[in-house]
Amino acid sequence: MSADPAVTLDELETDALTEIVNIGVSRAASNLRKMVGDQVLLSVPSIEVVSQRRAARLINEREITQLIAVRQDFAGPFSGRALLIFPVENSLELVRAVTGDELSPQEVQDIEHEALAETGNVILNSCLATMANMLQRSLTMTIPEVLRGDGAALFETRDETAADGLVLFLYIDFAVRKRDIRGYIAMLMDLPSLQALKALLGEFIERVVGDDG
């Protein structure tokens, strides 16, 4: 059965979204590099329309340990959820990195939640603000929330009806070169948001083609 074109992105739209996400994530990585003082390596963004359950599985297939994530919901012309996800054992290393390795192990544990929320806030905000700016729109974001669990918990796929609903799932792997820090930036958007995003990508493509012409 072929997919409904209303809930898929064609090649041009996918290329445009990949470029926009790439620029957003590169801006986020630049901010993370300033925070940890080391180079941040990024993968090419993966963009798929999948069920929410499948999105959770894509992360779980890569990680056998528990995960920790900073989650922020965003709203505007399109809305969804942005997540900064790490294997749990990476989280304290990230806190050590952003605090300049100056704290005792106990102090690192004491401020872990606060430091992760602030780091996630900076990274997710810079990524989404850059993307929204390129689409000539603005987004509002909720206060960051720190979650622990597996992919199903982070993506809230316990609810059977929600789990089977299709979402636009974007994710990018990243790693900090000289430290044991790796993770993912992920975004989930529902189908009405995907349709709104398709219209904005159409406008973006017209602008780019117009500028090139």
Rank of each mutant, 00 (worst) to 15 (best):
A117T: 10
T140M: 13
A115Q: 12
M141L: 15
M141A: 04
A129C: 06
L128C: 07
N121L: 07
A115M: 14
E114L: 15
M131D: 01
T140K: 10
M134S: 07
L139Y: 00
L124R: 00
L128S: 04
S138V: 10
E118P: 00
T130W: 07
S126H: 15
R137G: 03
R137S: 09
A132R: 02
Q136E: 14
S126P: 10
M134D: 09
H113P: 02
I123R: 06
N121G: 08
A129I: 09
V122Q: 08
L116P: 07
R137Y: 05
A117L: 08
A117P: 05
N121V: 06
L124E: 00
L124G: 00
L135V: 05
E118G: 04
S138D: 14
L116M: 14
N133Q: 13
A132D: 07
S138C: 03
T140W: 09
N125D: 07
N125V: 00
R137M: 09
T119K: 12
E118F: 01
G120R: 05
A129T: 15
S138P: 02
N133E: 15
I123K: 06
R137I: 08
A132L: 03
Q136A: 08
N121T: 05
I111Q: 06
T140Y: 06
A129F: 06
I123M: 14
N133Y: 07
N133K: 09
L124P: 07
H113N: 13
L124T: 00
L139P: 01
M141D: 02
M134Y: 10
S138A: 10
L116N: 12
M131T: 02
A115N: 02
I111M: 11
I123E: 12
E118M: 04
Q136V: 08
H113D: 14
T140A: 12
A129E: 11
L124M: 06
L124C: 00
